[in-house]
Write a protein that binds this DNA or RNA. Sequence first.
DNA 1: CCTTGTGTACTATGAGTATTAGTACAGTAC
DNA 2: GTACTGTACTAATACTCATAGTACACAAGG
Lengths: 136, 136
Amino acid sequence: MARTQALLIQIATGDPRPISKQIVDGVRMKIATGELAVGAQLPSVRGLAQQLTINPNTVAKAYAELTGEGWLEARQGLGLYVATPRQRLSNAERDRRLDDAVQSFVHEVAALDYPPDRALTRLERALRVLAPKKTA
Amino acid sequence: MARTQALLIQIATGDPRPISKQIVDGVRMKIATGELAVGAQLPSVRGLAQQLTINPNTVAKAYAELTGEGWLEARQGLGLYVATPRQRLSNAERDRRLDDAVQSFVHEVAALDYPPDRALTRLERALRVLAPKKTA
DNA sequence: CCTTGTGTACTATGAGTATTAGTACAGTAC
DNA sequence: GTACTGTACTAATACTCATAGTACACAAGG
């Protein structure tokens, strides 16, 4: 009966990412993997802030970003819900941003002098969590 | 006879990365791909700064990082040279940092709602530039 | 109507980082 | 000496991130 489905994100103080980005990434991953179903309600801004002992503004900022990207939908006075999927970006923009991510990853592999084939294998394994859409 | 081999890096003002990191990434990639051979001399701190119209301190910071990571070697009063390869990090640390990079990439693929198999293909292609060590 | 809980929108402040600017010093080569 | 190298400081500016506090509009339940 828990409206907001028990709990959600974990924030790591050692994580170099900003807190708001950790929330954005965390929620987005839970949606992408199906852990958060379409229509599910999210913890309230103030509730999640209290739970993580961070500032409500930080949560609001993360939620605003997710809403802007189309992952969440706000119902005024009620709360935030996982939105129905839709095309969010142009194909050109998606390709450009993926290319940035690819470059960034290659840079890191080069920096670590890591064997490229092993890096690819590990990445392939990690990407599998994004697949289960087709199992439904 | 150009001691510092014509030229090097390009800085993009639109790039979200700090300038110093752009230099670090750029030089490291040129070493990893073999474009900069072991023993090659790099542009001087002041020279590269003038060429890129940035502050010498920024170049020095980037060079210091590359030296600390073992990519470059400084000879006082002479200049900076590409160092002979050596093991720089512990395997545990390398694995940990690669895992961070993998996670970051997966997050971005999820954020873009990009087909994972296509993302993997593009990455595989981009990683090939790191291979040519074995062709020598 | 009133109270509570929701998202949202501001301003202000402190901490940290990136960059620029300027100066200075030690080593090398001619 | 002069002119290059790398390196090491301090100071000031600009920007981001997070916190703090306040306020407003909407929804639900008395």
